[in-house]
Design a protein around this nucleic acid. Sequence first.
RNA 1: GGGCCUGUAGCUCAAUUGGUUAGAGCAGAGCGCUCAUAACGCUUUGGUUGGGGGUUCGAGUCCCUCCGGGCCUACCA
Length: 569
Amino acid sequence: MARHLITSAIPYINGIKHLGNLVGSQLPADLFARYQRERGHEVLFLCATDEHGTPAELAAAKAGKPVAEYCTEMHEVQARIADGFGLSFDHFGRSSSPENHKLTQHFAKVLDEAGLIREVSETQMYSKADGRFLPDRYIEGTCPNCGFESARGDQCDNCTKQLDPVELINPRSTISGSTDLEMRETKHLYLRQSAMKDELEKWIDTREGWPVLTTSIAKKWLNDGDGLQDRGITRDLDWGIPVQRGDEPWPGMEGKVFYVWFDAPIEYIACAQEWVNAGKGDDWARWWRTDKGADDVSYTQFMGKDNVPFHTLSFPATILGSGEPWKLVDYIKSFNYLNYDGGQFSTSRGRGVFMDQALSILPADYWRWWLLSHAPETSDAEFTWENFQLNVNKDLADVLGNFVSRVTKFCRSKFGETVPEGGAWGPQEQAVIEELSRRVRSYEGHMDAIEVRKSAAELRAIWVAGNEYLQEAAPWATFKENPERAAAQIRFALNLIPLYATLSAPFIPFTAQKMLDAMGVAGQWPGDVAQALERMPAGHGFAVPDNLFAKISDDQREDWHSRFAGVRD
RNA sequence: GGGCCUGUAGCUCAAUUGGUUAGAGCAGAGCGCUCAUAACGCUUUGGUUGGGGGUUCGAGUCCCUCCGGGCCUACCA
């Protein structure tokens, strides 16, 4: 039995995520976690909310709430929605947890002791009206290069020139609009990633089979320009983890907090501690400490491409630099973006479908199936309502749902709601068993390799095999001259249902459970397909389930299309 | 500007890493079936693999060039 540690990139706290965020990390991570559990492996699947940073403070201010209260509420909201999507986290933690405070401060201390932290004095734009230092992107002004009036402090959106905030003409705060800005001196801690460049590169070079997307982004950062740059790991903010050396104060760093990208990945570890402290587990160290049993753990991270540098470089620099025996990631699965109907999903403009809205119009399995079978693995993918309607209706309602419906209803009308007795498997059934055996092995191979779309395609082919069998066996015709033969055929077909449910559960867990409940058996991964098709012997009672999937109508599609094109709220 | 990814049938994607005649699903067409959610099955029409050039016995795959789409570029996260 293998042990799988699985983490999904932790979603930021300032609002409800859209489907693009979902398919880029949490959903494929859940697919993998569910699959590995079903295969009988030990799994610890962790996710959390990422709660620190300027945007959280601003979102809380906008909501008129203290930031801690705002985060607590939003965490609950995200947890509830995640549950609605069937995301099977063993624990859904918070980067603001006491566990993460302590651990982040611990890492800062040991990194400092290892000589990997340096203090840097720098000047930064300060807004008196806002009472805070402003990140470059929160400053707007006229571009000195092209005259564009809404250039941001880091880059002009019009001419794409990289800017320094001090270069802007008439700079103003985008938070308050105030122009009362000044450059102030401030001191920050930097993680000396440059000192670890060779070690990191050596580590990356020995990773095998990682997605090109993952390694190419890492190599770029390692070798671009002057090589890997040191990174500031502190900020002048109120909300965050206070800068300390372990339990000790850090002279000169009073009133500052750690940068969210320093503490967010550490939450992966802290989350395991939260899991224990919540009473759900009793030993986090055997998942995270190679000196305490984590040596045989296989650790897989899931994330969108924008998160790759932090997971390939910054976090490993933290882990390796600590000199302590923490578990390093074994495989990084990264995703491109999902676009929405010819453009990008936009949180700020409310363009696209957000997780809460998605659940309000259709059950989670519709979304899970479409999103996973179109996961943006090799390039950006696109969501359109037409494509969604077509695929979901065909795959789920027609191929899978209708298969279950026709089999169970035929049996009910001819034999009753009990698996019929008589007859035996013949050459037709043997052929199906052989095909399914081959396909199940192929499906397992794709799932093991986290080839999401290929897995979905193989699963669909497995469903289709059931309809092909029925057409060829034609129990409705057989029944007229040889009811015993028909009984064997329908017994065979009925037994495909729990098999399909088990195989499909990682993709569509809610429906899979309905199928198993109706058939009155528990899910069990088919080691041997022939054996798996004996799960419901003659005489076994079952129920005819309601239709598993209602079809999406043209009217619904058009309604949703117009509803989600515009602005949210 | 630089780097990376990407372009294959009307649509969404494959193609064992240079190897026979580029394959699936959907959509379209035809036939069959009547158990089932007007569902299912079978057959079938669609391709100058973005354009051009090159290397090779052989190129969707490698090289050059042009065109289109996307991402990243380090203080949003």
